[in-house]
Simulated assay, not measured.
Amino acid sequence: MTTATALAANPLWYASRAGGTVALLLLTATVALGIAVGGRARPRRIGRFEIGLLHRNLAVLTLAFLGLHIGTAIIDPYVSLSWATAVVPFGAAYRPLWLGLGTVAFDLLLAVAITSALRLRIGRASWKAVHWLAYAAWPVGLLHAVGTGTDTRLPLQLWLYAFCLVTVTAAAGWRLHRAGPARRALRVSAGLLVAAVPVLTTTFLAAGPLQPGWSHRAALSLTALGGIR
């Protein structure tokens, strides 16, 4: 039985992939909403309370589906992951680099969730500084999905990744457009960074996961990867 056949016959694999995909879509919506309506870019016809409530609900749903994704991956005997790999990055024997990126993204979101619960105790400034980690969790989580996903080459999955990229890029572009003429240099730098994300992701896809033999390369240990020239 091939690896693809074994995974296809495993309901836990379906549950893990579905949970991870939905979590990525929800994280994309959470990040895009936070970017688009942050600062002075908030829509005039929608109250800040309603936006904040929607943002929090999306974040909670993201963590819930991440829990499903992580839990089903751990109890799946095929990959033999421990609970420690959910919080300690790059320690898994199965696709260590790409699973490690997923752990990093989860840790960042977990830090945001914990500090949000302690917001009144730690102060708004400290909470806001940690809250920015959610934006870093999105590209890291996307790389995790693209790099470790055994279904990355499926057209539907590629369209979902494209949707995530376009959504966040459009939200960032809207935010920069509404920011006004102030801090021109900062806006230009941010714009170039935003434009680079889909370009780099597309280049990585074409050179890596969409090429034959990617499953073997993705499964290599970090030590083995360091020895490849």
Rank of each mutant, 00 (worst) to 15 (best):
L68F: 11
H69K: 10
I70G: 03
I70N: 01
I75C: 03
P77Q: 03
Y78S: 12
L81S: 07
S82H: 08
S82P: 00
T85F: 03
A86W: 01
A86C: 08
V87I: 15
V87C: 07
V88L: 14
A92Q: 00
P96C: 09
P96N: 08
L97V: 11
L97R: 04
L99P: 00
L101W: 09
T103P: 03
A105C: 05
A105V: 06
A105M: 06
F106K: 01
L108W: 02
L110R: 02
A111F: 06
A111R: 00
V112K: 00
L118F: 09
R119M: 12
R119K: 13
R121K: 13
R121P: 04
G123N: 12
S126M: 13
K128R: 15
H131D: 11
W132R: 11
L133T: 04
A134M: 07
A134F: 02
A134D: 00
Y135W: 12
Y135E: 02
A137M: 08
A137W: 01
G141I: 08
G141Q: 08
L142E: 01
H144A: 08
G147K: 05
G147R: 02
T150D: 10
R153I: 10
R153A: 13
P155Y: 10
P155I: 05
L158E: 14
Y161E: 13
Y161N: 09
Y161F: 15
Y161T: 14
A162F: 14
C164T: 15
L165M: 14
V166P: 07
V168P: 03
V168C: 11
T169E: 07
G173R: 03
W174Q: 04
R175Y: 05
H177V: 05
R178W: 04
R178D: 01
A179G: 05
A182I: 03
R183V: 02
R184W: 06
R184M: 05
A185Y: 06
R187G: 08
V188M: 10
V188G: 10
S189N: 11
G191L: 13
L192I: 15
V197G: 12
V199W: 11
L200K: 11
L200Y: 12
T201F: 15
T201D: 13
T202I: 15
L205E: 09
A206R: 12
A207N: 11
